[in-house]
């Protein structure tokens, strides 16, 4: 059952095409990893999948069962957030906001969902801590919990492990895998880390201003582009 079908889609900023020729589909339960160099159009594509950016050409078909208010999204952190006075709990609960519509306050159910995700990610000890005083890995977990609060069927992650040390990175990958396998949430992740991408994801989409590979992770390793890119990673 296809959740997202991309048909020959292109994205452009002010007339300059950033990425073009996108043809792929994401099925329910998939774990898709979007890889590619800086400026290859990965984050732009995520914005397109979220409906924040309209394709300049082609189409993105989003299945009816996927409502925007039920898509979890974990964006890259902004500078302003680094010194934001908010408790982790406040941040996590704000993930429920999309599903509230115009209703101004959170219900008991929203709080229960927030608590559940706090437990799931093992961050109960952080809930009353100040967001700006958490370490990078803890902040990412809080943001992941927030994304899970919004999640229905699809979770989009934009470089969730950027700037984290190897141990924390590994933990985060395991968490995401758990979310994919145990909760049955479809995961689409942007990453620089090709090795982990191949290890955890079942599908790979490789971009370089255009789509140069889409298929299963095993095929990717066998393909020329995959071997080259994974070999190239060592030099980075």
């Amino acid at each position: 059952m296809a959740l997202i079908v991309c048909q020959d889609a292109s994205f452009a900023y002010e007339g300059n095409t950033v990425v073009s020729g996108l043809n792929f589909e994401v099925n329910s339960g998939d774990y898709l990893c979007i890889v590619g160099e800086n400026g290859s159009g990965k984050s732009t594509l995520i914005k397109g999948l979220l409906g924040l950016k309209v394709p300049s050409d082609g189409r993105i078909l989003i299945s009816d069962e996927l409502k925007t208010s039920e898509t979890g999204y974990m964006p890259q952190q902004t500078a302003a957030q680094k010194d934001f006075p908010a408790s982790a709990y406040e941040v996590i609960l704000s993930g429920r906001l999309g599903s509230r519509g115009i209703k101004p306050y959170y219900s008991r159910k929203d709080r229960a969902i927030a608590e559940e995700n706090i437990r799931r990610l093992g961050i109960a000890d952080l809930r009353n801590r100040c967001y700006r005083e958490l370490s990078g890995g803890q902040q990412q977990r809080v943001l992941l919990a927030r994304a899970l609060c919004a999640v229905g069927k699809l979770l989009l992650l934009d470089e969730p492990v950027a700037g984290l040390d190897p141990v924390v990175t590994q933990e985060l990958y395991l968490l995401i895998e758990k979310i994919n396998k145990e909760m049955g949430v479809t995961v689409v992740m942007v990453s620089h880390d090709v090795r982990s991408a191949v290890k955890f994801a079942d599908h790979i989409l490789h971009l370089r201003q255009e789509q140069i590979f889409f298929g299963s992770a095993e095929d990717y390793m066998k393909s020329g582009v995959g071997a080259e890119f994974m070999g190239g990673v060592n030099e980075l």
Binding site: L52, S69, P75, G95, G98
Partner: peptide
């Protein structure tokens, strides 16, 4: 806190 996330949801 996070305009992009708010917009995305």
């Amino acid at each position: 806190f996070d305009e992009t996330f708010a917009r995305a949801t």
